[in-house]
């Protein structure tokens, strides 16, 4: 698994549960307290060991931890950059949803060996406002992370949406999206070129 992903888990555990918890989880998983480097790749088994250790230490189901991780990545101030990159997906939540098809490609553009899940957004024919996000990844956990990301992005856009995660037969995850109101709240501000200011 790419260091960026491992490091995201590390930062989440450290910032959401404290440095002591991170150190304990790292020790349980046989990872040094320094943790992961963002731009190196690591064996997948290390990520699994990390999650197993986190589940035991936090005494919470893996799915919940992963969903919280997704929300954390979008909403925590230290990951503002990631939120901004996602907001480039479109001016409204629906635009954003459809931009997810391009997410793996955009990720690869930035970091060539970053293996993000393949995402496919499907619009339901029958009912307006109903969508399905098909998520195919090497690691089952990505679907739950995406659920957390979508929840936080709906808030970010000020949209009101019901989201539900389920598995398919073919090892993929589906997130059912029921968009009730695209402009429910004002959402957070986003300027295209804000990222350049001051830096």
């Amino acid at each position: 698994m790419h260091g960026l992903i491992n490091r995201a888990v590390q930062c989440f555990l450290r910032d959401a549960y404290g440095a002591d918890t991170w150190r304990a989880v790292a020790a349980d998983a046989g990872i040094g307290a320094n943790g992961f480097e963002a731009m190196l790749s690591y064996d997948d088994t290390l990520t699994d060991a990390l999650l197993v250790a986190a589940v035991q230490r936090l005494d919470r189901p893996c799915e919940q931890i992963l969903e919280d991780l997704g929300t954390f990545l979008v909403s925590h101030p230290s990951f503002e950059g990631l939120r901004r990159l996602l907001r480039f997906g479109g001016v409204g939540f629906v635009d954003f949803l459809f931009s997810l098809d391009d997410l793996p490609g955009r990720g690869r553009l930035a970091v060539p060996d970053l293996d993000l899940p393949q995402l496919e957004m499907i619009e339901d024919d029958g009912t307006a406002g109903r969508y399905r996000l098909l998520c195919r990844a090497r690691h089952q956990g990505f679907g739950h992370v995406m659920l957390g990301v979508l929840r936080a992005m709906a808030d970010d856009y000020g949209a009101l949406a019901l989201l539900e995660h389920r598995h398919t037969d073919e090892d993929a995850a589906i997130i059912d999206i029921h968009l009730l109101d695209q402009r429910h709240a004002s959402g957070r501000a986003f300027d295209l070129a804000e990222g350049w200011r001051g830096g």
Binding site: E37, M39, L40, L109, A110, V111, P112
Partner: peptide, 20 residues
Amino acid sequence: LIEAKSAAMEELRRLNLRLQ
């Protein structure tokens, strides 16, 4: 941009490995 970024990333990747 893609080319320039890839070249810079490649250098950084090598630097990372050396530092590691």
